[in-house]
Computed example of a mutant assay.
Amino acid sequence: MTPPALLQNTMLSCVVELPHDFRADDVLAFHGRDSAQIAEYTDAQTFMKGLMWSGLAACLTIRFHARHADVELKIDKSPIDSAPLDRMEPNASSDANETAELRRMAVRMLGLTQQIDDFERTYRAHPQLGPLIAGHPGLRVPLTASPFEALAWAITGQQISLGVAISLRRKMILAAGVRHSSGLACHPDAQRLSRLTEADLRQAGFSQAKAQTLMILCHLISEHRLPLDAWVDALPVDTIREQLLAIRGIGPWTVEYTLLRGFGWLDGSLHGDAAVRRSLQALLGCTEKLTSEQTKQWLAPFSPWRALVAAHLWAALGVKGA
């Protein structure tokens, strides 16, 4: 029996400083939402996540300390016995660029690009929001590793419970079939997921409509017609919204959620979110359920922080991992 080819391995690392009010538990809760831990692993101060890095299986590890986080990315390269010569020699310039990109990704994922100080100062004395802010000071929204992951998660979770969505996501990751040498399964990128068929996703438990939407999305990204990653820095919100809404199966809630979890945009109106409406109903002491329109009107004055308000409403309800 021929032994499996050894893998080259690249390790990137950096340190990210944390503000005094950083809430590591929120990040750990988001990435630990799947108790099966097939693609993410969390403990009291660390999370590990399987992901794709430039088309290769990788494992991201972030360890939290009092005022900083250690960030490591372990990338499985091609088998040594078949690797091109130029991949065998380290490239200092390339490693520096990749390390810088790793740091940018970690900063986004930890919510450190979100300007929450002005929000908290502005609404600390607000009769309804003030108590929420006091109960969750420093609340930031943890992000996914990529906009595609956020969008795939939003599509997966349309009109089903969080528990069912987590199970579907797990099956999709396993169906994609990418596993890092650490043992963690890797969340697929669009190129990898596009190798699956609609029938594969249906077998994993997706409805026909969701399977078709995911396939359309993957092909648009693979054909460079939907440049999600290129939008991260520029954040052309109107363009993102217009192009996503043009895809069959993607509606306003999916877009606003993706803008929040994938891009860190804090002004999306998540009035279509059932948990947001339920939490707001409790906050206002209403006996009847609030409609989407009522919730939209209540959130409107809090622009440009409407999605951050929604995150506080999630936190008040005890929703973790949404």
Rank of each mutant, 00 (worst) to 15 (best):
residue 1 M to Q: 09
residue 8 Q to M: 12
residue 18 L to Y: 02
residue 18 L to D: 07
residue 24 A to F: 12
residue 27 V to T: 11
residue 27 V to E: 04
residue 28 L to M: 11
residue 31 H to C: 06
residue 34 D to N: 06
residue 42 T to W: 06
residue 48 M to W: 12
residue 52 M to I: 11
residue 55 G to M: 13
residue 56 L to N: 06
residue 56 L to D: 04
residue 56 L to T: 00
residue 58 A to Q: 07
residue 68 H to W: 11
residue 69 A to T: 08
residue 70 D to S: 10
residue 76 D to K: 08
residue 82 S to F: 04
residue 82 S to Q: 12
residue 83 A to P: 02
residue 92 A to M: 05
residue 96 A to Q: 04
residue 99 T to F: 02
residue 99 T to A: 06
residue 102 L to C: 11
residue 103 R to D: 13
residue 107 V to M: 10
residue 115 Q to H: 07
residue 120 E to Q: 02
residue 120 E to Y: 01
residue 124 R to C: 03
residue 125 A to K: 07
residue 127 P to D: 01
residue 135 G to M: 05
residue 135 G to N: 07
residue 135 G to T: 01
residue 137 P to K: 04
residue 140 R to F: 12
residue 141 V to D: 07
residue 141 V to S: 09
residue 149 E to I: 06
residue 152 A to Q: 10
residue 153 W to G: 03
residue 153 W to D: 12
residue 157 G to M: 07
residue 163 G to S: 15
residue 173 I to P: 00
residue 177 G to H: 05
residue 179 R to S: 04
residue 183 G to M: 11
residue 184 L to D: 05
residue 185 A to N: 02
residue 187 H to G: 01
residue 199 A to Y: 08
residue 213 T to C: 15
residue 215 M to F: 10
residue 217 L to P: 09
residue 222 S to F: 00
residue 225 R to A: 15
residue 226 L to S: 11
residue 227 P to D: 12
residue 228 L to W: 05
residue 230 A to F: 09
residue 231 W to D: 06
residue 231 W to M: 05
residue 233 D to N: 08
residue 240 I to D: 09
residue 246 A to G: 09
residue 251 G to A: 15
residue 254 T to M: 14
residue 255 V to M: 14
residue 256 E to N: 14
residue 258 T to K: 06
residue 260 L to Q: 10
residue 264 G to T: 01
residue 265 W to K: 01
residue 266 L to S: 01
residue 269 S to H: 11
residue 272 G to R: 10
residue 272 G to K: 08
residue 275 A to C: 07
residue 278 R to L: 13
residue 278 R to A: 14
residue 278 R to S: 13
residue 282 A to N: 01
residue 282 A to M: 03
residue 288 E to N: 02
residue 292 S to A: 14
residue 292 S to C: 09
residue 292 S to Y: 01
residue 295 T to D: 13
residue 298 W to Y: 06
residue 302 F to N: 07
residue 307 A to D: 10
residue 312 H to F: 11
residue 313 L to E: 09
residue 315 A to M: 02
residue 320 K to H: 15
residue 322 A to G: 00
